[in-house]
Design a binder for these strands. Structure first.
Length: 263
DNA sequence: ATGTCGCGCGCAGCGCGA
């Protein structure tokens, strides 16, 4: 089973690229972030005609996450929103179970807050979201399922995940407190799927539209797939679909994919 | 030093978020 996470930065603007990616890569599960549209505006028909079932958690203008599963796989036990704050109206979390022939797989699509500027309520919200995510991840881990927590974490885990670390030292994506919160989640028993397969520095998933970041390869790695022990046992490979950043009108993020052997 | 998108609103181009 191939599971992909991709921040598309507007699913309506990126529909052609999304359909091309589904056709070429044929992922079994896709976790999308930054839909930037309400549920009714999601291009459901086009994605269904490409062979997928769809569950969305959208919002006007900002945020928005979705899960796709390649038919005949269904999406079950769909959860929209992260527990822990009933007042949180931002659409940043959707989770579902995909019951495969061998073992159920639980997947979440996460759009973790950016958190900039630091020192404002935006950063407090980011840290609070990370605490809520960890609490929920701990409760899910107790199920001992094949579990993949995938998404745009807006966290640069290590200096080797950024081309120019000095430029990011005061940024919400790379602050020590942010990295510590991410490590705390990892330390609950999760594994960074891409890092488990490839230890090389300079594996990036995002290049800013500005300042020629893409041609100069000034990227950062912020899109992650965290695996439960039961998922790690089945991990075969992981990869970054970097070529999509070079298309016309690309997202600023590229897909990241793990392959699991569900035997 | 600077460099970009996509959204809503509303019909130009600004403010916001990233």
């Amino acid at each position: 089973m191939r599971i992909t996470t991709w921040n598309v930065n507007s699913v309506k603007q990126r529909l052609a690229h999304l359909l091309a990616f589904l056709a070429e890569a044929q992922p079994d599960v896709v976790c999308l972030q930054e839909l930037k549209c309400v549920d009714d505006a999601f291009p459901r028909t086009e994605v269904e005609e490409a062979g997928y079932v769809v569950a969305t958690h959208g919002q006007k203008a900002f945020n928005g996450v979705a899960l796709l599963a390649r038919r005949p796989l269904p999406l079950q036990e769909i959860r929209r929103g992260l527990p822990g704050d009933a007042a949180d109206e931002q659409a940043r979390y959707i989770e579902a179970v995909i019951p495969t022939a061998t073992v159920p797989v639980r997947v979440a699509s996460i759009y973790l807050p950016n958190g900039n500027p630091v020192g404002t309520p935006k950063y407090d919200y980011k840290l609070a979201f990370m605490r809520r995510l960890q609490a929920h991840a701990v409760s899910l881990r107790a199920r001992e399922e094949v579990l993949v927590l995938a998404g745009d974490y807006n966290v640069i885990p290590e200096p080797e995940d950024v081309a120019d670390p000095a430029a990011w030292v005061n940024d919400a994506l790379f602050l020590p407190q942010t990295r510590a919160a991410f490590r705390s989640l990892i330390n609950e028993g999760f594994t960074d799927g891409l890092r488990a397969c490839d230890g090389r520095p300079g594996l990036y998933s995002f290049w800013d539209y500005q300042a020629g970041c893409w041609p100069r390869n000034q990227g950062i790695r912020i899109d992650h797939l965290l695996l439960s022990p039961q998922a790690l046992d089945r991990l075969v490979s992981a990869s970054v679909q970097k070529h999509l950043r070079g298309l016309e009108k690309p997202s600023d993020h590229v897909p990241v994919t793990v392959e699991l052997d569900l035997g």
